[in-house]
Nucleic acid binder design. Structure first.
Length: 774
DNA sequence: CAGTGAGCGAGCTTCCGCTTGACTT
């Protein structure tokens, strides 16, 4: 007979807490929400806004266990997180387990430490129904938006698409950014660098300095260079000032995802998976958090660890405060459980992420770095031989240097710059000692043509950063949202090929001025998020009909309403009814507006041969070009849009080319050979078999002979494919694939080791079954 | 990882937040 039952959200947490509380307490986990709106239907009464909840199939078992333990216990404590969702979890537990709200204690804690838990037990409270209602409003709003908008897309764009408060805005960010980049006009400018020499105790030393402003044209560069030929240079000012740099706060989910991407090359979901392991093994605190708060326990142990490792002057305990929009701060920041463990025994990825977390946490408790920043300005004086002594022209160069006088937190953690900052830093650059009035000798001067750069495309991590800034999404949903928008094919990670761009370098050496042309690749990008045709069409469609939902501040605005509900100042059903009253008619209207054209459809022109209209649109299976319409006598002709074309940019000429496929190129062995292009690129079809053309052949120009060659090559490979089979086990075969021999058994493939591959022909049935089993 | 190749008139699809599952012996 158990006296007390405590219910928390996470099983790892349950284990820890049980240790703190001792024998009178049993601690169990609800594994998150135990009840939700029904999966398939909208499950909201559109008049009253009353939600219909159910226990999802995969939660039945947990609920049954909780029920039976709750019955046995004298007292039940609900210890879910202290935020909207956590309060709702507790309320659902009350409802489902049949607990009396008056008899049930709701407790909360923000850190999993013994004093925090014991203190929480001493301060139980009742369920906060206002907070629960704020969650219900959130839940109902998201369901209404998602389940009303998605079907509109199925009708107007393409089946199985989805829209939602979070994902649609995430896509919009990427679409807007891409359009900004396309619109961007790159302007050239010229950055001028000079090398001087000066005398430092009899030694000639070099000094690099930069012109204090950018030049706009080559003419300006040439004119200035002419002046510089005769100019004399003196030090105008020497300024030294101490600068302090402070460490960044410890990790939240979003900053961890960003830093792991930059420093370790992890994807957002990879980071979460690895962090989950670290958490389950007790190495770090909870990894889904928006808080930068550290427990006093951590502050103390961090101090001890830093003192021991680096000495007292490196220690500087500090507490950080969260500024993120809509942060709910139910947990601590992400930190090591034990600060005295600088490293752990674990698989490599976990080790690396752990060390990153340790360093970031430690650095946050360390002293500021102190630097000395030196700025030297150099004046060029140009003599005016013609006696024209109008306003003296002042040309200034600046040289900056930075010296770390005390490294502080930099000893363990170097901050990485944002995505779009340039790599040039003055860090570690030491300038020779100089004084005002000192004269310098000009050596070489170089003006390099540069180009203003458009805003950077989003990476997974920088998108998360932006979403957090706008208050869209939560720590638990960043990674899933990024997967969703890629799964729906709204965006994809891709490479953009740059364009070759010439630029000019102008050099003044001695008295001779030279111009050199070079070229660089501009605008190339790797692995960045790009909108697809479908993403563009869906985004434009939603922007046109539902600008309110697509507004970047929509979430922030409704959050304010949720806050008012949480404070008991507004009724949640009232708020939802008001929203729905405006929203629902727009949905109806959009569905009803039976326009002839599908969303995103674009007419390119007419086929010069038949006069039939040619258009691009999103078809049942993605973007297609179409010739003719359904109401004409002759059926319309379709062709899938190959990847290299975009719906926005394809021309009539390019589209007409696409209709030239499928192309019959002749006969072989009495059967026609047809060339077409499909999902996996161009292919030849012959005798019911398909042969890929590969990259070397163009489907428009390939000859019959070339195609036959490919067909024969494929046949040969096909024949070599089969290595071995066994009469006793017809389902088992040893085959030769793209990566050498492998075993196929009952529809599944099994790889072989290097040694096994070498003697693939001699493998026995027993050996094969062994491999399958392993 | 191990081979793919249709259709454009029917089925199904979808949201955001919480949380990790486990057919063995």
């Amino acid at each position: 007979m158990q006296k007390n039952l405590v219910i928390v959200e996470s099983p790892a947490k349950a284990k820890t807490i049980e240790k703190f509380l001792g024998g009178d307490y049993k601690v169990m986990s609800s594994y998150g929400h135990i009840r939700d709106l029904k999966k398939r239907e909208i499950s909201i009464d559109e008049k009253t806004m009353e939600p219909q909840y159910e226990i999802p199939a995969d939660k039945k078992k947990v609920v049954a266990q909780l029920k039976s333990e709750a019955k046995k216990a004298e007292k039940v404590w609900l210890a879910s997180d202290e935020d909207r969702e956590g309060e709702a979890i507790s309320w659902h537990l009350c409802e489902v387990l049949g607990l009396d709200q008056q008899q049930t204690s709701r407790i909360v804690f923000h850190e999993i430490t013994k004093p925090a838990i014991l203190k929480a037990i001493e301060q139980p409270r009742m369920l906060d129904m206002n907070l629960v209602n704020a969650q219900q409003a959130r839940r109902v709003l998201d369901r209404l938006v998602g389940f009303k908008l998605s079907p509109v897309l199925w009708r107007k764009v393409k089946p199985a698409l989805s829209a939602g408060r979070v994902q649609s805005v995430a896509v919009r960010l990427i679409v807007d950014r891409e359009r900004e980049i396309q619109k961007f006009k790159s302007e050239p400018y010229y950055a001028l660098q000079a090398v001087f020499t000066l005398d430092d105790n009899g030694k000639q030393v070099e000094l690099k300095a930069t012109l204090d402003h950018r030049l706009k044209s080559q003419e300006e560069v040439d004119a200035l260079m002419q002046q510089m030929k005769q100019a004399t240079f003196t030090v105008d000012s020497v300024q030294k000032k101490p600068v302090k740099r402070s460490p960044a706060p410890p990790f939240t989910t979003s900053t961890l995802q960003q830093e792991a991407a930059r420093k370790l090359g992890f994807t957002v979901s990879q980071t979460m998976l690895v962090a989950q392991h670290l958490y389950e093994n007790g190495h770090i605190t909870y990894m889904r958090t928006d808080s930068v708060n550290l427990s006093s326990l951590c502050l103390n142990t961090a101090k001890t660890a830093i003192n021991a490792l680096y000495g007292e002057k490196y220690s500087h305990p500090r507490q950080f405060h969260t500024h993120a929009k809509g942060a709910q701060e139910a947990h601590e920041a992400i930190r090591p459980t034990y600060m005295d463990r600088q490293t752990i025994e674990a698989p490599q990825q976990e080790q690396r992420l752990y060390e990153l977390i340790w360093k970031r946490t430690a650095a946050s408790q360390m002293a500021d770095a102190e630097l000395e920043k030196t700025t030297i300005t150099i004046e060029a004086e140009c003599g005016h031989a013609n006696g024209d002594n109008s306003a003296a022209q002042k040309t200034l160069f600046t040289a900056t240097g930075e010296v770390v006088t005390f490294d502080g937190f930099l000893k363990v953690y170097r901050p990485t710059e944002g995505d779009d900052t340039q790599a040039d830093t003055d860090e570690g650059k030491l300038l020779p000692p100089m004084h005002k009035g000192q004269s310098l000798e000009r050596m070489e001067m170089t003006a390099t043509e540069r180009f203003s750069t458009p805003p950077a495309r989003y990476t997974e991590a920088s998108l998360v950063h932006k979403m957090e800034e706008l208050g869209i999404g939560r720590p638990s949903t960043y990674a899933p949202t990024i997967s969703t928008i890629q799964q729906r094919e709204y965006v994809q990670k891709g490479d953009t090929k740059g364009q070759e761009r010439p630029y000019t370098i102008t050099t003044l050496k001695g008295q001779s001025l030279t111009h050199r042309k070079k070229s660089e690749m501009a605008g190339s990008d790797k692995g960045k998020l790009l909108p697809t045709d479908i993403g563009l069409v869906v985004n434009d469609f939603l922007m046109q009909h539902f600008p309110n939902i697509m507004d970047y501040s929509f979430t922030a605005n409704v959050e304010q309403d949720f806050d008012r509900i949480a404070e008991g100042k507004e009724q949640w059903e009232k708020m939802m009814k008001a929203f729905y009253k405006k929203f629902e008619p727009t949905v109806e209207q959009t569905l009803k507006s039976r326009s002839e054209h599908k969303a995103g459809e674009r007419v390119l022109g007419n086929d010069p041969e038949t006069g039939r209209p040619v258009m691009v649109k999103i078809g049942r299976f993605g973007p297609v070009v179409q010739k003719g319409t359904a109401d004409e006598k002759e059926k319309p002709v379709f062709a899938q849009l190959p990847k290299k074309f975009s719906m926005e940019a394809i021309t009539l000429e390019e589209a007409l080319e696409l209709f030239r496929l499928p192309r019959k190129i002749g006969e072989y062995e009495g059967k026609t050979v047809t060339i077409n292009t499909g999902r996996f690129g161009p292919y030849a079809q012959h005798d019911g078999k398909y042969t890929s053309l590969g990259k070397d052949f163009d489907p428009m120009t390939i000859t019959l002979e070339e195609a036959i060659g490919l067909i024969e090559a494929k046949r040969k490979k096909e024949a070599e494919k089969h290595i071995k089979s066994f009469d006793e086990k017809p389902g088992l075969e040893v085959l030769n694939g793209r990566w050498g021999p492998y075993i196929v058994y009952e529809g599944k493939n099994y790889r072989l080791t290097k040694q096994q591959k070498e003697r693939a022909k001699e493998l026995t049935l027993e050996e094969c079954l062994e491999i399958v089993k392993a």
